[in-house]
Amino acid sequence: MKKVRWGIIGTGKIAHLFASDFSHVKAGELCAVASRNKASADAFAEKFDIEWAFVDYFSLINSHEVDVIYIATPHVHHFDLAKACILAGKAVLCEKPLTINEAQSRILYDLALEHDVFIMEAMWTRFNPAVEQVIEWVEEGEIGTLNSLQASLNFLAPTDPNHRLLNIEMGGGALLDIGIYPVFLAQLLFGKPDFVQNQAVIGDTDVDVFEQILLGWESGKLASLDASLISCNPNRAVLSGSKGYIELDSEWFKAKSCRMVTAQGAERAVTFDFPGNGYQFEADEVNRCLQEGLLQSPNYSWQDSLELIATLDEVRQDIGLYYPGEEQPDFDVDDHHHEHSHHKH
């Protein structure tokens, strides 16, 4: 089987984490990187022993040196770059969120189908061994009927108003960057919610800096989720069932351990001793899919991704948060409601 050749677009923090974990990927080799800054591209290539360093994204996209491209740029650039990759016949692993809204994501998946090109949103948490263990316990009925879920993802973002996390032009805000993880976990376990409620705090730069989201399902299940760029939190996830509960340990989205506790108090803990942060598992999945000739991962499908962004769209519509270039519906009728429920931070 010939080695899958990888390229990376972007040289920021997430690209560094992915590249350093790539040494643990079972197959495939990292052979190209692109940054619009020559010094960054060269330094990144040297650090990770990458053969090709491009100063132009499109040179990498059209290069014959790579089979699959990992897109690690700010959110607002994902759509155009992924589209260019698909049109160039390159498989894509695109950092989450795949795009800033469902309409854009749908266009990419339709295009990938039309051009017969593999694409996956980089929801790396889905392939984390601790998360896979949790799914297995739930499916085997170890905690009885799973009724509810609580998950948080909070961290202190840089305070620079131009930082991508706080910049509306860059698709900033807590929801798309970190809120996506708790919502993902809830939908992984319960599917797309029937009810979405939330409270959000909008910061000085007009993006959401903190929200609490309550998701509900007709079947009587609930998920209580929060995401914040202004608070510290243990970042655990707890799944509650009729016979016990499961806890994913701190920094649950990249956890290396989880435990199950029965209603009687018996505990079973599992630890996974994997190296790095765990980005290697999504790369392994992409390599497997490419070698099997698949266009999407059966473990994190296009449908899963579309249902996730659809929920995030719904939360953003409720907050009244729109990014440049998005259609803004006419909110006249409902203005008082928005004034009432969203506080300026």
Results as ranks from 00 to 15, higher is better:
residue 303 Q to L: 10
residue 223 A to M: 07
residue 239 L to W: 13
residue 324 P to R: 09
residue 231 S to F: 14
residue 317 Q to C: 05
residue 194 D to A: 06
residue 213 I to K: 01
residue 338 H to V: 04
residue 131 V to A: 03
residue 21 D to V: 03
residue 156 L to P: 01
residue 142 E to V: 07
residue 134 V to Y: 05
residue 78 H to E: 10
residue 332 D to T: 14
residue 80 D to V: 05
residue 258 C to T: 14
residue 89 G to M: 07
residue 316 R to D: 03
residue 198 N to M: 14
residue 231 S to Y: 14
residue 343 H to F: 11
residue 115 H to T: 12
residue 67 D to I: 07
residue 323 Y to R: 01
residue 212 Q to Y: 01
residue 16 H to E: 13
residue 88 A to G: 11
residue 79 F to G: 03
residue 137 W to F: 13
residue 78 H to K: 05
residue 264 Q to H: 05
residue 184 F to E: 13
residue 301 S to R: 06
residue 258 C to V: 14
residue 319 I to Y: 06
residue 231 S to K: 15
residue 249 D to S: 12
residue 185 L to V: 01
residue 140 E to F: 07
residue 294 L to F: 10
residue 328 Q to T: 12
residue 25 V to G: 02
residue 202 I to V: 15
residue 141 G to R: 12
residue 298 P to Q: 11
residue 176 L to G: 12
residue 152 S to V: 01
residue 148 S to R: 14
residue 211 E to P: 00
residue 295 L to N: 01
residue 310 A to S: 15
residue 53 A to Q: 05
residue 148 S to N: 15
residue 85 C to L: 04
residue 108 L to N: 02
residue 229 L to S: 07
residue 295 L to M: 01
residue 47 K to P: 01
residue 265 G to R: 14
residue 154 N to H: 15
residue 109 Y to T: 08
residue 119 I to S: 08
residue 77 H to Y: 11
residue 264 Q to I: 00
residue 254 K to Y: 09
residue 117 V to M: 08
residue 57 Y to Q: 03
residue 114 E to K: 14
residue 155 F to I: 04
residue 90 K to E: 08
residue 56 D to Y: 07
residue 154 N to W: 15
residue 312 L to G: 02
residue 39 A to V: 15
residue 59 S to T: 06
residue 259 R to V: 00
residue 122 A to I: 03
residue 14 I to E: 15
residue 56 D to W: 05
residue 311 T to D: 07
residue 233 N to M: 02
residue 287 N to P: 02
residue 147 N to H: 14
residue 136 E to M: 10
residue 16 H to A: 06
residue 250 S to H: 09
residue 265 G to F: 13
residue 63 S to R: 06
residue 324 P to N: 11
residue 34 A to I: 10
residue 315 V to H: 02
residue 211 E to S: 14
residue 125 T to W: 14
residue 18 F to H: 14
residue 246 I to P: 02
residue 178 I to R: 04
residue 99 T to S: 04
residue 32 A to W: 04
residue 61 I to H: 06
residue 173 G to W: 08
residue 321 L to I: 13
residue 92 V to P: 02
residue 99 T to P: 00
